[in-house]
Amino acid sequence: DVEPGKFYKGVVTRIEKYGASINLNEQVRGLLRPRDMISLRLENLNVGDEIIVQAIDVRPEKREIDFKYIP
């Protein structure tokens, strides 16, 4: 289970102007929005990149997770 405040290694699977889709595994994925990137710009991400993200909002009833990137 993903817990708010914990850090996870994820893989960038899609990049859109509203954010990047991050997969932690086949069943768990979430969104990294541009506003939640401290020192990383969306255009510097590539599909397949592995990054460390922090879960900031977990809504299991909607199967949604928001991530934050902290270098």
Rank of each mutant, 00 (worst) to 15 (best):
D1I: 14
D1G: 12
D1A: 13
D1T: 14
D1F: 14
D1C: 15
D1N: 14
V2H: 04
V2T: 04
V2D: 02
V2Q: 02
V2P: 05
V2E: 09
V2R: 04
E3C: 11
E3I: 15
E3F: 11
P4A: 12
P4H: 07
P4F: 09
P4R: 13
G5R: 03
G5A: 03
G5L: 07
G5V: 03
G5Q: 04
G5T: 03
K6C: 14
K6P: 02
K6I: 07
K6G: 07
K6M: 09
K6L: 07
K6Y: 07
K6F: 07
F7T: 04
F7D: 03
F7H: 04
F7Y: 11
F7E: 03
Y8V: 01
Y8N: 00
Y8L: 03
Y8F: 04
Y8C: 14
Y8I: 02
K9Q: 07
K9Y: 10
K9P: 04
K9S: 06
G10C: 11
G10V: 08
G10R: 00
G10W: 08
G10H: 00
G10Q: 01
V11K: 09
V11S: 03
V11F: 08
V11N: 03
V11E: 03
V11G: 00
V12Y: 06
V12F: 01
V12A: 00
V12Q: 00
V12N: 00
V12G: 00
V12W: 02
T13M: 08
T13L: 04
T13P: 00
R14E: 07
R14T: 08
R14N: 09
R14F: 09
R14C: 07
R14L: 10
R14Q: 11
I15A: 00
I15E: 00
I15C: 07
I15Y: 00
I15T: 03
I15K: 03
E16W: 15
E16N: 14
E16R: 11
E16Q: 11
K17M: 11
K17H: 13
K17E: 13
K17T: 12
K17V: 12
K17P: 15
K17D: 12
Y18I: 13
Y18P: 02
Y18E: 14
Y18W: 15
Y18L: 09
Y18H: 15
Y18R: 13
Y18C: 13
G19H: 06
G19M: 05
G19F: 10
G19P: 02
A20Y: 08
A20E: 01
A20S: 02
S21Y: 15
S21R: 12
S21L: 15
S21V: 15
I22K: 01
I22S: 01
I22Q: 01
N23K: 15
N23V: 14
N23P: 01
N23F: 13
N23S: 15
N23Y: 14
N23E: 15
N23D: 12
L24P: 01
L24N: 01
L24Y: 02
L24V: 11
N25A: 08
E26Y: 10
E26D: 14
E26S: 14
E26R: 11
E26T: 12
Q27P: 04
Q27Y: 14
Q27N: 14
V28C: 09
V28F: 09
V28Y: 11
V28P: 01
V28G: 04
V28S: 05
V28R: 04
R29P: 04
R29V: 15
R29F: 11
R29H: 13
R29S: 15
R29I: 13
R29G: 14
G30F: 06
L31R: 06
L31F: 10
L31I: 14
L32Y: 01
L32S: 01
L32Q: 02
R33E: 04
R33M: 05
R33H: 08
R33W: 04
R33G: 04
R33I: 07
R33P: 04
P34S: 10
P34K: 08
R35F: 06
R35W: 06
R35V: 10
R35H: 11
R35L: 07
D36P: 02
D36V: 03
D36R: 03
D36Y: 08
D36W: 09
D36G: 04
M37Q: 04
M37F: 04
M37S: 05
M37A: 06
I38V: 13
S39T: 09
S39G: 15
S39L: 11
S39V: 08
S39A: 12
S39W: 14
L40R: 06
L40K: 07
L40G: 08
L40C: 13
L40N: 06
L40E: 05
L40P: 03
L40W: 03
R41E: 11
R41D: 10
R41A: 12
R41S: 14
R41K: 14
L42W: 08
L42R: 02
L42N: 03
E43R: 08
E43Q: 08
E43P: 04
E43D: 12
N44F: 11
N44E: 15
N44H: 14
L45R: 00
L45V: 06
N46H: 15
N46E: 12
V47K: 02
V47E: 06
G48Q: 01
G48N: 04
G48L: 02
G48C: 04
G48P: 01
G48H: 02
G48F: 02
D49Q: 11
D49E: 06
D49P: 00
D49I: 06
E50Q: 12
E50F: 14
E50A: 10
E50C: 15
E50L: 14
E50I: 15
I51D: 00
I51T: 00
I51V: 06
I51R: 00
I51Q: 00
I51M: 03
I52Y: 11
I52F: 09
I52T: 10
V53S: 00
V53P: 00
V53E: 00
V53Q: 00
V53C: 06
V53F: 04
V53W: 02
V53G: 00
Q54F: 12
Q54C: 12
Q54S: 05
Q54A: 05
Q54K: 08
A55M: 07
A55G: 01
A55I: 15
A55W: 05
A55L: 07
I56L: 12
I56K: 10
I56C: 08
I56P: 01
I56D: 02
D57T: 12
D57K: 14
D57E: 14
D57W: 08
D57C: 13
D57Q: 14
V58Y: 10
V58L: 06
V58M: 06
V58D: 03
V58I: 11
V58R: 04
V58K: 04
R59E: 04
R59T: 06
R59F: 07
P60Q: 10
P60E: 08
P60I: 10
P60H: 10
P60R: 09
P60T: 09
E61A: 11
E61P: 06
E61I: 08
E61Q: 11
E61N: 11
K62V: 12
K62A: 12
R63T: 09
R63L: 12
R63N: 14
R63E: 11
R63D: 11
R63G: 15
E64G: 07
E64R: 09
E64P: 03
E64Y: 11
E64N: 06
I65F: 07
I65D: 02
D66T: 12
D66C: 08
D66H: 12
D66G: 08
D66Q: 09
D66L: 15
D66A: 09
F67Y: 02
F67T: 02
F67Q: 02
F67M: 04
K68Q: 10
K68M: 12
K68C: 10
K68Y: 07
Y69E: 06
Y69V: 05
Y69R: 03
I70N: 09
I70R: 06
I70Y: 11
P71S: 11
P71L: 06
P71C: 15
P71I: 07
P71T: 08
